[in-house]
Amino acid sequence: AEAKKVKWKLAMTWPSTLTPFASPSLKVAKLVEEMSGGNFTIKVHGKEKHKAALAILDMVKNKQYEMGHSSAYYYKGKSISTAILTTVPFGMTSTEQYSWYYYGGGEAVTKKVFDKFKVNCYPGGNTGVQMGGWFKKEINTLADLKGLKMRIPGMAGEVFSKLGVNVTNIPAGELYTSLDRGTIDALEWVGPGMDIKMGFHKVAPYYYTGWHEPATELHFFVNQKAFKKLPAEYQTILTVAMKAVSADMMYENFDMSQAAWAKMQKDFPNIKVKTFSKSILDAMKKATDETMESYAKKDALFNEVYTSRKDYLKKARDWTEISEFDYVKTSQMVE
């Protein structure tokens, strides 16, 4: 029989030029087309085309686009449970999180959260540990955080505002200028690979290490009806392609970050890498747990996702500690 022709459209939260966030979509489109012998094509629209960056879930739900690429936590206004599918402060690393998703029950709870949107949600790339952000002055005590003006969205923003930080939301295009001129004192973005293009290192010398987004997951959304209508082999092609490009983005971002970090250090030797003090971290952890518990009390589904993640992290971390973590320490001993 002749192969069925299928034409899909995919909308991304990001502009088409934003590497590596745009990579999974562009690569999935290419892979799907090649694997289907040109019969299954996906047209990718960046933010510059649809102009509704944070409506990807809605648009996929309503089938204006069969597919979307975004991140679950942008939709926490619609369902609070999405907030912890992306990443959680002091939560799992990317390896731990992927294991949880594929082998530790993550896939099932994710499906529960997204079924009410009639959308399938798949991993779509991971940034790995994100940096804690760029600060214009050093943060030594909790008092230094009081009244600090910082751009930090999501759960971490909620945690920081509990510690007295003045959390503001400023559009990406205005961030550099705002930091430069002191409209804000600090901000967090991603990691060296993406931060370097924004130029923050030129205006804020303190680069704090991460705590709040240990494994930010991007997600593919696929309209359930559209997915069911696909011939079985196209379903397989799409699923495999999504899994491949999602891992691929993690490698791409890792590589960009190591290169950018080397360049930043060379061009701006004054950058000081800092880790928040124990007392600050304790307060952050406490505020994080309180925030999570309070949501878990209010929302049964949230509680289910939260518990699933928490239980898995406990098991996974025991292993991470004596494997990966210990190995890095061990190999450093002989350097």
């Binding site: 509704a52 309503n62 559009p171």
Partner: peptide, 19 residues
């Protein structure tokens, strides 16, 4: 119709545009 049901999303982007 699916093309035009994008309009509310875009109108909403305009509504929330601080600039």
């Amino acid at each position: 119709f699916s093309m035009f049901s994008m309009m509310p999303f875009r109108i909403y982007s305009t509504m929330t545009n601080k600039l």
